[in-house]
Amino acid sequence: MNGDQDNPIITVENLMVGYTGNPVLEEVSFSVNRGEVFTVLGPSGCGKTTLLKAMTGLLPFVKGKIRIAGEDIGPGHRRDAVRRLRSRIGVLFQSGALFGSLTLWDNVMLPLVEFTDLPPELIATVVQLKLDLVKLGKDGNRMPAELSGGMKRRAGLARAMALDPQVLFCDEPTSGLDPPTAVEIDDLLLELKSVLGVTVVLVAHELSTVENVSDRCIMLDGEAKTIIARGTVESLKRESKDPRVQAFFNRKVSSKHLEVGQLP
């Protein structure tokens, strides 16, 4: 499923982030369709996380336009647009960013208590459901410090999904995880997309995750400071002639390290 193509939920136009004269990113334009998994690819330091921060209203940008779920944010727009936007998005941070002094249960419950009028019985049920969905149903009373990296990531996902956001932003959701745990996260993201209809924007450099879940992607480059390729993962992998794109997808050691007689 590639989402609803006529009805983009996110449009970014001529975005420039950083400082005039010394931008981190410039001339970035793309759109994300409703219900798709959209990936922002690129090597470390190319500005992926910066782009994510600009899209979630955490980082003010110099010029350009970002429109997410009907809200325009950026220079010249009111602060309350960002606040309205935040009730419709969820963000899964790289580390999970759980509140260390609260149990998992309380971490997931916090946004529900703060931003909804649900009665306590239903809040409890929703929290349990969210934890069940990320397979942490029985771990609600544990503290974040007691969890492994993968569990923290899943708990972060449960909290990001607490208010049933329309768009879920994930910053490197599987980096540093072992393959089976990473696949669990990939599965969860796909389920969110297909069953709950969530649009997922992924920032990643883990190729396996990108290949598993993403419908379309763009690739950023640190030197060009803008998008250097766009399309499906397959098309970038097979058709792109750009050496930077090829270097990203084909991980090979330098030929000087190969033994004589060994096929490259």
């Binding site: 998992l104 409890a124 049920t125 934890l131 069940d132 029985k138 771990d139 609600g140 069953v195 709950l196």
Partner: peptide
Amino acid sequence: DEYFQYIREHSSETLYGQP
């Protein structure tokens, strides 16, 4: 129905983590 069934399948019904 699809949504509700999905939720039910994954739900443990007991509120384990409730303090």
